[in-house]
Amino acid sequence: MAALLEVKNFEAAYGPTRVLFGIDFAVEDGGISTILGANGAGKTTTLRAVSGMIGTSGSVSFDGERIDRVATEEIVRMGIAHVPEGRGTFTSLTVEDNLTLGAYTRKDRDQVARDFERVYGYFPVLHERRLQQAGTLSGGEQQMLAIARGLMLKPRLMLLDEPSFGLAPMVVQALFEIMRQVNRNEGVSMLLVEQDAALALELADQAYLLETGRVVISGAAADIKGDDSVRRAYLGY
């Protein structure tokens, strides 16, 4: 398999504070890669930099094309859906309007109508609440909405920033099962940022361990999961 997303020698800083120190990672076409790391490791920064929301040096290629100088709005048009930290809900709009905005760049209007059915199929609760103000949804429902909004783009790659954050274990299980289905059935590749390492390693096929802006360990998720010393030293379970 060829890499869909390939990131090399990636660096980022907020003002004078350097946050990423030349990291490399990739997402295979149809694959799921995960970036693990503690608070402040630079996970969110990495995703924001891939989306062109902050300046970087290094190279980012998507489907063989350099995108590291491309504006966020155009990166979205190439088929990269970013489900941001904090969910990015349009709180005073309805659930349905949130999903409509997810499909904003698409021209295939009748296919979009069918995609509403598709994401409501994954998340029936969103269908029940479709006319409700999105800000009144529970945290878990807003996370579902954020993922659903990303799916409305019909993306080739999803960037997911800690989708498990603040959710009950049962809800997290259900959410990850849906992500697995989306990946398997629709071939959507994913770059998943997580603190819950056990969960992420279960879903992903490639894993990268980020520590204060550097990749300290990388490899097949199965290997890392199976390596007791790595697990104890870095993942703490």
Partner: peptide
């Protein structure tokens, strides 16, 4: 209209708007 919705979105939440491809 979709454009009207996008304009509302851009005023409400510029960052999320960029992430769905709206030219804020």
């Amino acid at each position: 209209t979709p454009l009207g919705l996008a304009m509302r979105g851009a005023a409400l939440n510029p960052e999320s708007s960029r992430l769905v491809g709206i030219r804020v």
